[in-house]
């Protein structure tokens, strides 16, 4: 049976992990390679590096981090942040990334998804969507009439693109995205649980895998997201960074709730 995936995310800036990672027995808590090795040991199913600086100059640093990680960690690696062109995909995939996630650039220029899918295959194209509630859907013709309306935000959550999250997810799939990384800006950082309503809205609309992100702060929240939605994976950062739980603690809780995990 296909396992539900647990994916720790590392925010990286200039080749260093941004939030101090609280791993016991780890000397350089700022080294993304060492952190990825540790997450692998804990049973992570995949690791995500998010380049939070993501300037053109910083790109080479991230490529180097990916290359060094891929020499030691033999689980899938995803890299995102500041991806602008299909050539950016090429550099990261060559360095050893398995998937590349693109966010703002795809909103501005959706053809980056089709170009990357054509050149490198759908399996490595992840559309990252930052969604936020902007009111209630008041279009009587909409299948979501009367329910929450979600907009896609770009530029690290600073700009409302005006795009509807569900429609954008469907369009990204049709252009060639192979997976959706769906972050709720309403629940991100709250540790109050994943945004089940937005996840369900997107999961019902697409047939590619969806990664839940934002709000995973307790063991129960991970059980809940897999019991209440059709999400394929859950991503979290701080719950693992600050050493509250190891990845395997989350998996033990899921196993106890009969959610299939590795």
């Amino acid at each position: 049976m296909l396992a539900k995936r647990i994916i720790p995310c590392l925010d990286v800036k200039d080749g260093k992990v941004v939030k101090g990672v609280n791993f016991l027995e780890l000397k350089d808590v700022g080294d993304p390679v060492a952190c990825a090795v540790e997450y692998n040991r804990q049973g992570a199913d995949e690791v995500v590096f998010l380049d939070i600086m993501a300037s053109h100059e910083g790109r080479g640093t991230m490529v180097d981090v990916v290359r060094r990680t891929a020499e030691k960690v033999f689980i899938p690696l995803t890299v995102g942040g500041g991806i602008r062109t299909a050539d950016d995909f090429h550099d990261l995939l060559r360095a050893g990334a398995d998937k590349v996630s693109v966010n703002s650039a795809a909103v501005v220029n959706p053809s980056i998804l089709s170009e990357a899918a054509y050149r490198f295959g759908n399996q490595c194209v992840v559309i990252a969507i930052d969604g936020k509630r902007v009111g209630t859907d008041d279009d009587p013709d909409s299948p979501r009439y009367g329910k929450s309306k979600f907009h896609v935000f770009t530029e690290g959550g600073r700009r409302d693109s005006g795009l509807d999250v569900v429609r954008w997810a469907r369009k990204a799939e049709s252009l060639g995205a192979g997976e959706i990384l769906l972050t709720s800006m309403d629940t991100d950082g709250t540790k109050a649980g994943f945004d089940l309503e937005m996840l369900n809205a997107v999961c019902e609309a697409v047939s590619i895998p969806v990664i839940a992100s934002g709000g995973g702060g307790s063991l129960e929240s991970f059980v809940e997201v897999f019991e209440e939605t059709n999400a394929d994976a859950a991503l979290a950062a701080s719950i693992f960074h600050y050493g509250e739980y190891e990845v395997n603690d989350v998996k033990a809780a899921l196993r106890a709730a009969h959610v299939p995990v590795r």
Partner: peptide, 10 residues
């Protein structure tokens, strides 16, 4: 079932 078959399977 979603296609592609993607992820960890037994």
């Amino acid at each position: 079932l979603k296609i592609p078959h993607m992820g960890w399977d037994s």
